[in-house]
Write a protein that binds this DNA or RNA. Structure first.
Ligand code: MN
Ligand code: MN
Ligand code: MN
Ligand code: MN
Lengths: 156, 156
DNA sequence: TATATATGTTAGCATCGGCTAACTTTTGAG
DNA sequence: CTCAAAAGTTAGCCGATGCTAACATATATA
């Protein structure tokens, strides 16, 4: 709909452009969902390595709230994607590419949490909301968040 | 891990509580993903009814950026869930329950967009980011967003 | 009104990310 | 050093949400 045949070519009106922009928005969200698993895993693996020296499936499963077989399957996907390295029955480590992604995710997570806290949100809620929001924040928005956090800190 | 047997009962340490809270956060995100399709559809259906008087699969597909068979399938899920009513080959309408959900989603969407705009984000980016963020914003955070928007408006 | 085009549905396929049950390997307590 | 418990894997299942190809229905133009 909203398409007419004029002189044999397609014509667009204002609501057509709107529809296209909207579709791109939804496509962006679907894309974000595709990277979400990888992002949460590498971020968590980096945290566990920092805390415990290594990331083991049992700990990943506990912190994600999923069962061990789910972790095994997803880790093999991450290995396939070149983000983690590991040998069977051994702990999981990040490849250089995985480390880079983990760093970016941790930064984003930190900024989103700090931003929500600066709005007066309680820690529990800030962490919960950030865990989902982080995957849908563009670099533009992230920088705006960062600016707010910085200003809030300067004011004490 | 991080569980010891003491006097025959389980003992928790600080990192255990942390792990549990983290798992709840991820569980919350997984739950949000379960309602996401329904939320985006009813919101869009409400918009189309407002603009065009009815919501047809072809328009829903165009605006979501998916193919018509995907819409057919998802609409039948929404019907199953009691959110929409429709007869074969006819336009789609919202049940009272669907209208209520749509209203809540539109409010949330509006607030998130207005909030991002008030931060100086451009419209295109605000809409894109909001489309994903909206599903992960608790009522607590939404109210904080609303307060910021209101204050920004008062200052002109 | 006849029929061509646009719209909608069905069937069948794929991937993702959950799960349980059953099995294997590693670890560590005695 | 042995062997039971803990950890990890595999196989097989499921539902959600995309897709294409083929078919059915509705609509609008000639
Ligand atoms: Mn996350
Ligand atoms: Mn995170
Ligand atoms: Mn959305
Ligand atoms: Mn929306």
């Amino acid at each position: 709909m909203t398409k007419l045949q004029i002189h044999g070519r397609e014509a667009s009106d204002a609501s057509d452009r709107d529809a296209k922009a909207q579709a791109e928005g939804f496509a962006t969200v679907r894309q974000a969902h595709e990277s979400e698993m990888a992002e949460d895993y590498v971020e968590l693996i980096a945290e566990l390595i920092e805390i415990q020296g290594e990331a083991r499936p049992v700990d990943i499963a506990e912190r994600l709230g999923v069962k061990p077989p789910t972790v095994t399957k997803n880790i093999s996907r991450l290995k396939e994607a070149g983000l983690v390295s590991r040998e069977r029955y051994r702990a999981i480590f990040l490849t250089p590419e995985g480390q880079k992604l983990a760093e970016a995710c941790r930064r984003r997570h930190r900024i989103v949490v700090a931003f929500l806290l600066s709005l007066g949100i309680d820690e529990e809620t800030a962490e919960r909301d950030a865990e989902g929001i982080e995957h849908h924040v563009s670099e533009t928005t992230l920088e705006a968040f960062e600016a707010v956090v910085t200003r809030a800190h300067e004011k004490h």
